[in-house]
Design a protein around this nucleic acid. Sequence first.
DNA 1: CAAACGTGGAT
DNA 2: TATCCAAGTTT
Length: 322
Amino acid sequence: MPARTRGGALTAKLHGAVVRWFAAEARDLPWRDPDCSPWGVLVSEIMLQQTPVVRVLPVWREWMERWPTPADLAAESPGEAVRAWGRLGYPRRALRLHAAATVIATEHGGELPDSEDGLLALPGVGGYTAAAVAAFAFGRRASVVDTNIRRVHARLVSGAALPAPTLTAAERRLAEALLPDDDATSVRWNAGVMELGALVCTARSPKCAACPVADDCAWRAAGQPPPSYVPKGQAWHGTDRQVRGAVLAVLRAAPRPVPRIFLEGPAPADSAPALTGSVSTGPELARLHGLAPAPEQLERCIVGLLADGLAVELASGLALPH
DNA sequence: CAAACGTGGAT
DNA sequence: TATCCAAGTTT
């Protein structure tokens, strides 16, 4: 198994091919700018979790302009972070990024930890993000394993169409075995393999003709066999996630705190005049999203939003934290 | 470890 | 129109 031998001839060939390809074809993304701060890299990594680059770009620029340092964000309310998150999705990421900024500002003197372990201790930072920030912000040799890298490894080395349904120990070992020994090359390799997965070795229609390592690809050599399992998609229509999303949209758009009684359903006729101008979520869900969740489901979602800190119950109602 | 967690563009 | 899928983390 030459490919599993660190420092072997084949891995050296792969390193050169991918690093060269990356130097020529990499997208010019702002968080890859040498002048981008570690904080900028962290913000990008959190925003990019399960969210495409094109949608992250404008929001990342707004955040960097508004909150150039962790202390700047920490000085704001969590609710502002959630509002500024816009429609990137998974808004709990905004809350955790705010929490991370607070930890960085209060416990690390405003500077990001530069080790994987230190980064891993931050809210919202898991194994992938800790390795990515250590590598891309601090030039460390870290084994970065994201969905793109897993897919490239699965095809190039394992000969499978897709990586395992969940990250396995074997995948971690393989990624570590393939990682170049020196810091500088390891960073380019991580970035290059990730970019290769994003632009060429894509999930649906891989562009093998444009691949710098096609000649060494085990999956291609095997005739591109189909996946050995069927990825199960995420249900959406009628789910709590859909209702949560709709309620969140109403909260984000609301000009003021939303009384909980309105969140849960149509406004009682006799109380409407006293709250003119406030938002009534039940009708808003129907009007804006065509949703009419059962009262139990709406209640469950509101309770969940409160528990997650995405909404805060005030004396008079429910609103994004302020 | 499986399930939950948003959103919108692409196919 | 329906399904897929995108730089994951947490419980």
